[in-house]
């Protein structure tokens, strides 16, 4: 592109401006959400206060009172963290084995794992409700939410880790074996330092997916284990009466994740394309 853009001075100025304008348009709804969260509910629906108003923190201060925000937030943190942890505990050994000791079935197993992602969740909605409510008695528990979040993300976790592990040169490990390094030493001194970055970004991305999950967390909970998705879904404000407070609680629900997301843009590509685009 460099050679091309040097040719036209006009394009050098014009296209960046277009890019900036489009980026601002894309960000505008998020800006508007944050902006509205500082208005009172009454001001938020009045056109005369569209841009000029007295900012207030009232919506954030009353979040607990209005929505019981922290209970849902704590549930989201607990379920997303443990689901991520368990997915890694199951996924790391599996991906390790597939990357370093592939058999002739490895490709098929990986493809099959991916295919479980294509099963439409709605198709098994009732069996899941039936099993967990009438049979196992774990409906609306943290355990269930953690289990389901872990399972739906496991294929992505294994795929991502697999692509990272595959990039670690096997020669290093073979060489260390020649030098008489023990298995534990191999893991501690060679594998962990080399794989750490991949595991960390997989964890980050999995956490984001868990946090934003909006089907099972809504359908398999009522009050006890309900997450932020359920909170927002239950307060959708059809009459637009509570724009201010709804914006505040929404901002609080997505804010931390957007910031986390900025840190793992690159990994996002790899994670979501199952390593097909790097």
């Amino acid at each position: 592109m460099a050679t091309v853009s040097q040719k036209s001075k006009f394009g050098d100025v014009f296209w960046p401006i277009v890019a900036w304008i489009i980026a601002l348009i894309f960000f505008f709804p998020i800006f508007w959400l944050i902006f509205t969260s500082f208005k009172t509910d009454a001001d938020a629906v009045k056109p005369e206060f569209l841009f000029s108003f007295t900012p207030t923190l009232e919506n954030y201060l009353n979040m607990t009172e209005n929505y019981d925000y922290w209970r849902f937030a704590v549930n989201s943190v607990i379920t997303s963290s443990f689901a991520t942890l368990f997915a890694l505990v199951v996924g790391v050994p599996a991906a390790y084995a597939m990357a370093f000791n592939p058999s002739r079935h490895t490709k098929d197993i990986l493809m099959w794992m991916l295919s479980t992602k294509m099963l439409p969740a709605a198709a098994v909605l009732y069996p899941m409700t039936f099993l967990t409510k009438n049979f196992l008695g774990i409906f609306d528990t943290h355990f269930l939410v953690i289990l389901v979040l872990c399972l739906i993300n496991l294929p992505i976790v294994i795929w991502m880790l697999f692509t990272y592990f595959k990039e670690i040169p096997k020669e290093i490990i073979e060489a260390s074996k020649m030098d008489g390094v023990t298995t534990w030493g191999e893991i501690k001194d060679i594998l962990i330092p080399l794989a750490w970055g991949g595991v960390a970004s997989t964890a980050l991305l999995t956490f984001i997916f868990c946090w934003n999950e909006a089907y099972w967390t809504v359908r398999l909970t009522t009050t006890e284990a309900a997450t932020l998705s359920k909170l927002i879904e239950g307060n959708r404000a059809p009459e637009g009466l509570f724009f201010g407070r709804l914006s505040a609680v929404s901002t609080a629900a997505v804010g931390p994740i957007i910031v986390l997301g900025w840190f793992c843009q690159k990994q996002l590509v790899r994670g979501l394309t199952f390593g097909a685009v790097k």
Binding site: L24, F27, P29, S229, I232, A253, I258, W262, Q265, L268
Partner: peptide, 12 residues
């Protein structure tokens, strides 16, 4: 700025 919308939870 461009990537941000992707991290919004669907309900929000």
């Amino acid at each position: 700025l461009l990537i941000s919308p992707f991290f919004i939870m669907p309900a929000v």
